[in-house]
Computed example of a mutant assay.
Amino acid sequence: MLRWTVLLAATVAVTVPLTLVGVPSAALFAALVVGIALALSSAGPAGVPRKLGVAAQGVLGVYIGTMVQQDSLGTLGGHWPVVVGVAVGTLLLSVIAGALLGLRRDVSPLTGSLALVAGGASGLVAIARELGGDDRVVAVVQYLRVGLVTASMPVVVTLIYHADKSRADAASGVPADQAPWYLSLAILVVLVIAGATVGRLIRLPGAGLLGPLALTVALEVSGFSFGLSVPMVLVQAGYMLIGWQAGLAFTRSSLRAVGRLLPAAIALIVAIGVATAGSGVLLAHLTGLTPLEGYLATSPGGVYAVLATAVETGSNVTFVIAAQVVRILLMLFAAPLMARGVVWASRRLGRDQSREITAESREPIRVAD
Rank of each mutant, 00 (worst) to 15 (best):
L215T: 02
A196S: 14
G195P: 12
G195R: 07
Y161E: 09
Y239F: 13
E220D: 13
A163V: 03
L213F: 06
L209A: 01
S253E: 15
V190M: 09
Q245R: 14
S254C: 11
S229R: 09
A186S: 14
V230I: 06
L234Y: 03
L210G: 04
M240P: 05
I202G: 10
T251G: 13
A168G: 15
L209S: 03
G238F: 00
S172V: 03
S225V: 00
D177G: 10
P231I: 00
G195K: 08
R167Y: 04
V190C: 09
G199V: 07
L201I: 01
A214N: 06
L210R: 08
T251C: 06
Q178Y: 09
W244Y: 15
A171C: 12
G223S: 07
Q178M: 14
A218Q: 03
A163R: 02
S222R: 01
R167A: 15
L185Q: 02
V235I: 13
Y182V: 12
A170S: 13
A214T: 14
T251H: 12
G227P: 12
V190P: 11
G173R: 12
A170E: 15
T251V: 06
P205S: 13
V233K: 07
W181K: 13
G243F: 01
A168V: 04
Q178S: 15
P175H: 03
Q178F: 09
T197C: 05
S172R: 14
V233C: 04
W181R: 10
G211Q: 05
V198F: 10
L188E: 11
W181P: 10
S166H: 15
L191A: 03
G227Q: 02
I187A: 12
V174N: 05
A194N: 07
P175N: 06
L204R: 06
L210Q: 05
A171D: 15
G243K: 04
T197V: 14
L219N: 00
L188W: 10
I202C: 11
G238Y: 00
K165W: 07
R256F: 04
D164R: 08
R167L: 15
F224Y: 13
D169P: 05
I242V: 09
A249M: 03
A249Y: 00
P231D: 10
A176M: 12
G206P: 09
D164C: 06
V174M: 08
W244T: 01
A186Y: 06
V192F: 04
D169M: 11
L183T: 11
G247F: 00
G227Y: 00
P212I: 04
G223T: 00
G195W: 07
P205I: 00
Y239G: 01
V189R: 05
W181F: 10
L228K: 02
T197D: 12
A214V: 10
I242L: 11
L209T: 04
S166M: 09
Q178R: 15
I242G: 01
A179Q: 08
F224S: 12
L255K: 01
I187Y: 10
L191V: 00
W181M: 13
A170F: 11
A176Y: 05
I202E: 07
A176R: 13
D164N: 14
L201E: 12
R203M: 09
I160R: 10
L201R: 15
P231N: 06
R203Q: 09
L191H: 06
